[in-house]
Design a binder for these strands. Structure first.
Lengths: 345, 345
DNA sequence: CAGTGCGTTGCACATTTGTGCAACGCTTGC
DNA sequence: GCAAGCGTTGCACAAATGTGCAACGCACTG
């Protein structure tokens, strides 16, 4: 079959045309939807293409169309359960609408981030999706200034260019307080991190407000980066004091897992009898038998679907119509998931 | 500052040239390393570029160079702890050498996978890295036949085109057996999955062989997909029998976590007193206080580094020299990580 | 049988960039 | 002062593709 030179470079439409005995235009039209080609030439072309292993060069195609088909995903901590699930969902949906994802990892040192971002602008990405709160706003501004279509997830920089997809962190956090309050908890700790991400801050604030309205004060602990280790450390600090809290709202499930483990392993406490815990995100581990964590579910599927909607309804003709999408804000609900770390009322 | 039309399409080198009062060649040379431009025009060009928000179009640049700078990563289950860590490490290293990652998620239905793969071939990726054992061999063959530089991780399809990066699964699995055997375990179960991935099969085989040589038989359970749920289910099945195993080798840490949880929650067993467990991968959760799982560490950093080495040493002039990289096979060692799920000798 | 119409095909030009080659100007050495 | 040399610049062509426009051929109709 494969009589082509194996390591040699890619096949061009010209070569296919010569083998099929038609013009290069015919080859181009064969691979363009809606173009006018007769069935016989189409067949000849497809046969020759198959034989040579021809694939349309999207780079050249994108020179002409505005649409490169590339969507750039910018995020940090993509090895984290929540972010990797988000990445999984988004890449899948993108593929379903014939887009392909370029991933920029902003966890490294920031100059390499800058370089990578520049790379991406260079590839004329169709849109840029910012997955996490960590990438600095300056990067986002660079994208916007370069005419990029930017979609922000769970940030609330109030920029006018980008679309924004949010989760009602504040509302959910208020609900978290009432769950714990109704369970009889009165000395409630808030476990957060030093990341200072908009969504985390919104959760802290929402909880604090609800507590204040109920006449309770809360102490906020920020032990380190947003992860298991920080939660564990926070647990060790908070529970070794003379006045132990009887509940904790952890702004992230990872923090909650660490906190619970500290409580049980280091102090032998029982959850939820002596200590109630509420998390956020509903990562897979929250459902594991060792944790059975009561938490709030991130509407990942809805977020991913909304992104594809934004990209598909990217009609340039509808500029400022009533259903204009540019600069829109969408907020999804994070529903509580009841498991076993909060005592039933 | 930004007097450009905000939503309008990208800036071309021509426009920069006109604003700077130079020829387009001068613009091109300004953004090409090693080209000859005087300092004064260089400055004029950079100023004009900054003002217009110009970024070099990599798509057009890649038309001329062979090097597109894109590396395609194909994998399934990227929301899994092991795979997401691998993805994290690889994307970071790629950015460090000025490449950018395109991610193809093969978890979806297979026709969308095929479409996505075609997409990627179309982008003239510099290389294709296959992350997991799941993508079918036909996809890989498509890549190879199209002249792609393919790098396989933890597969052992014995194809001649691609480079192969492996972990010594068999050796590690034999070591796992001896760890358990030395701890006094004699009724040992192997917990695996129905995925049938090469690396998982190699682990099963290695363990089985070592057991046979020691005069022991083992039972292999394959409860479902490779994950926590399947491990839990396997635990429920195996431990409810009349003759309980006293140890389990789980071919994946996720399986091990599920298995341990079933043992403790459903049957109230103590680990490692009544049941020893060994996992594989050393995912983050293996180090959590609730598990403290003894396992084998996947050399993720080494794998990622080796990939970049392969891409950097991609000297086309050295075709068949002594250090030829094409079709090479590299095997890294998976070192044991001792924690608390195996009794000390 | 001639004319009209429609589907198909090829030519030529467009997209954006890198680069060889020739020309040009400035500096330096004799 | 003039020639040589070197650094810089612009022209023109290359890369692979999509597409408008004109031409061509075939079938159908009057």
């Amino acid at each position: 079959m494969s009589e082509m030179k194996p390591g040699r470079s890619f096949v061009s439409a010209q070569q296919v045309a010569e083998l099929a005995g038609v013009s290069r235009s015919a080859v181009s039209r064969t691979f363009t939807d809606g173009a006018s080609v007769s069935e016989t030439t189409r067949k000849k072309v497809l046969e020759a293409a198959e034989q040579l292993g021809y694939h349309v060069n999207h780079l050249a195609r994108s020179l002409i169309h505005e649409d490169s088909g590339i969507v750039c995903l910018i995020g940090a901590d993509i090895n984290t359960p929540y972010h990797s699930r988000l990445l999984d969902a988004i890449t899948r949906r993108l593929q379903a609408i014939n887009r392909v994802a370029m991933v920029i990892n902003t966890s490294g040192d920031s100059d390499s981030v800058e370089a990578a971002l520049r790379q991406t602008l260079n590839y004329r990405a169709n849109a840029t999706v910012v997955l996490s709160g960590t990438p600095p706003a300056s990067l986002i501004n660079t994208c916007i200034n370069s005419g990029q279509h930017v979609i922000l997830i769970n940030r609330d920089d109030h920029l006018d260019g980008p679309e924004s997809i949010t989760v009602d962190n504040g509302v959910a956090a208020r609900e978290a307080f009432h769950m714990l309050h109704r369970a009889g908890c009165r000395r409630i700790a808030v476990v957060s991190s030093q990341a200072g991400t908009p969504s985390l801050v919104a959760r802290e604030r929402g909880f604090e407000e609800a507590a204040r309205e109920a006449g309770l004060g809360v102490t906020i602990t920020r032990a380190g980066p947003t992860g298991y280790g920080a939660g564990f450390e926070a647990g060790r600090l908070l529970l070794s004091g003379s006045e132990r809290p009887d509940a904790a709202f952890c702004v992230t499930d990872l923090l909650a897992c660490g906190f619970m483990d500290a409580a049980r392993v280091e102090f032998g406490m029982n959850v939820p009898e002596e200590l109630c815990v509420v998390g956020f995100d509903d990562i897979e581990q929250a459902g594991w038998a060792s944790y059975q964590l009561t938490t709030f579910r991130q509407p990942i599927a809805q977020i991913a679907e909304h992104i594809t909607t934004l990209l598909d309804s990217d009609n340039p003709d509808v500029v400022n119509g009533p259903g204009a999408v540019s600069g829109g804000r969408v907020c999804f609900h994070a529903a509580p998931v009841w498991r076993r770390t909060v005592r039933p009322k």
